[in-house]
């Protein structure tokens, strides 16, 4: 009896979570005319693929997609390299100034992002990077949270393994590259997913920086389209569905690592 209550609660909430997503998928295949007639699911024979060609015809959707992939990919790679190397140094070496560096980084994590918008705009303006992809990537190189994630995880790599690598002829960078990074594979996966999702969904900064539509990323591009083609609901949902797919696929690829990485800082920190 009690179990039945537990399960029904869980199922009710599951439905709440899933219905909007299912509705998104259905709407992506729904003819514009049917939005009024069938609020939920139209008969299967009325579903259509027409929204997708319409989407590509109305706007440079592919262009947006490529831009998003380029910006997110570049940002994740640079962040990964900088954060993992820095996290390794903070986890496995003792050196003068270490505490100070960690303290300053932690303190800046407390400052909300919007504080940086104005000075960052000024900086990017002076670097002549307004309306460029570099203007999105460069300010995103620093991921303090990511660095602490790596530090936390690399603390648990045994010192003896690093010493063994040193005895086996590694220099310090080779230790990082051949031993520490491969051992940290789960956290690398989690980091990549978190960083990718962050950049992929980034809106405010690109909205400020980007001006030309051929440089738009997906969030900016799709949002602009809403203004212009307000009535084409089907194409809008098709675009949203396609925009979400890469994150979903990456998540399925890395989900084990992701959950572990997400909760690592919280539970242990």
């Amino acid at each position: 009896m009690r179990r039945a209550i537990v399960y029904s609660l869980l199922v009710v909430f599951s439905i709440g979570c899933l219905v909007p997503i299912v509705w998104l998928v259905v709407s992506a295949f729904k003819a514009n005319a049917d939005f009024q007639a069938y609020a939920f699911v139209p008969p299967v024979d009325r579903l259509t693929m027409a929204n997708f060609p319409s989407l590509f015809k109305q706007m440079p959707f592919l262009r947006f997609m490529v831009n998003s992939f380029f910006v997110a990919g570049a940002t994740v790679i640079v962040q990964l390299f900088f954060s993992s190397l820095g996290g390794f140094a903070l986890a496995k070496y003792e050196f003068a100034g270490k505490k100070a560096i960690m303290g300053v980084m932690l303190a800046t994590m407390m400052i909300p992002g919007p504080v940086l918008l104005a000075p960052m705009y000024e900086l990017i303006y002076h670097l002549r990077l307004i309306d460029s992809h570099l203007g999105l990537i460069v300010p995103g190189m620093v991921n303090v949270f990511g660095m602490f994630l790596f530090r936390q995880s690399m603390l648990s790599v045994p010192d003896e393994m690093l010493q063994a690598a040193r005895m086996d002829g590694c220099n310090e960078f080779q230790i990082f590259w051949h031993v520490v990074m491969p051992v940290s594979r789960p956290i690398v996966g989690a980091f990549c997913l978190i960083a990718f999702m962050g950049t992929w969904n980034s809106f405010l900064w690109p909205q400020i920086i980007l001006q030309s539509s051929d440089r738009f990323t997906l969030p900016i591009g799709l949002n602009q389209m809403v203004g212009v083609y307000e009535a084409d609901y089907g194409a809008m949902m098709a675009g949203t569905l396609l925009a979400v797919l890469p994150v979903v696929m990456l998540f399925f690829l890395l989900q084990k690592e992701f959950i572990a990485g997400l909760t690592k800082g919280a539970v242990k920190g």
């Binding site: 190397l85 140094a89 903070l90 070496y93 300053v104 504080v115 940086l116 190189m141 620093v142």
Partner: peptide, 30 residues
């Protein structure tokens, strides 16, 4: 082993100084 951690931190710290610390200070002035 003594210089390694500084080299490893350098990319992060340098970009942090330019795109993290400087904007914070600049923001106060601005």
């Amino acid at each position: 082993a003594r210089t390694a951690p500084y080299l490893f931190l350098a990319p992060f710290v340098i970009s942090f100084l330019i795109f993290g610390a400087y904007p914070i200070v600049r923001s106060m002035i601005l």
